[in-house]
Amino acid sequence: MKDRKLSFFLKSKFSGDNIFEGAVGLFAIGVLIIALLLFGELYLESGLSRNAFGFGFLTGSIWDPVSEVFGALPFIFGTLVSSFLALVIAVPFSLGIAIYISELAPGKLRAPLSFIIELLAAIPSVIIGLWGIFILAPFIRDYLAPPLSTYLGFLPLFQGPMYGLSMLTGGVILAIMIIPITSSISKEAIQTVPIYQKEGALALGATGWETIRMSVLPYARSGIFGAVILGFGRAIGETMAVTMVIGNSARISGSLFAPSYTMASVIANEFVEATSKLYISSLLEIGLLLLLVSVIINIIARILVSKLLRVEGGGRA
């Protein structure tokens, strides 16, 4: 009796499995639809600005809400430079962390270390921003900037007065925020390196460092690169913390000591009080640019990471 009932239920179109499949499928497609709607909405709403400024929006360096002249170049510049600076600082740290945890750390230390580093990613960015304003910015102004301008002051990068809030501070804050993601994905990439790969190098007489350099890192290369690009993507989209420390000044300067401005920051700062249609439309166009850049960067990163996983699946070096 029980069996017959069950088989009837399974044969019917409305079996639990089908309903379940339909429901979760709907959720999955729902996310896709939301993403498409978001893109469509940004595209439509930025129409006014795209018509008014055209390509000049990307190259204009004046952002003047009073006379309604909008050019996004200072924000594009600030976003790319601060994110790139973050990478320059974060990548060596992340690689070091990843290598230490996956290759060198004593077994007992590995789990707690990864846990603590991933915990860093869980700190709300406004908290990191406050710490940036009250601790990091004065520290950089008083202890990091003076030696930089003394010894490297011949470079345009380290010239001019330093008030704490600057491109440099923004880059350091972003570096701290992307270390968890780049280090944990790099770590996973390094952990996919097959043991025979390492044993081979060691058997040939390589030292520990040589093994890591010649056999582990090249193998995990594309995964690490993917991790770096994901970190870059995170840095580009990060808003709150960087807004609080970057100085929010829409001018392009060659010095890292000068204040700067990012795309995400200007949206966060000005959207609430923007009232004229062209102003709102221009802010939305910045949003559209930001979305496009993030999507492209994430696609590149995913391709690189998945390439690594395929290599591992194939089992060849």
Partner: peptide, 29 residues
Amino acid sequence: KAGKGKSVNWPVGLGGKGNEGVSGLLSQN
């Protein structure tokens, strides 16, 4: 050169978010 508005194109200076951001800039510099 700049005019009046809720956001303007500042010729010089550092931007702080909110009254607390500006007063933070003042107290630290």
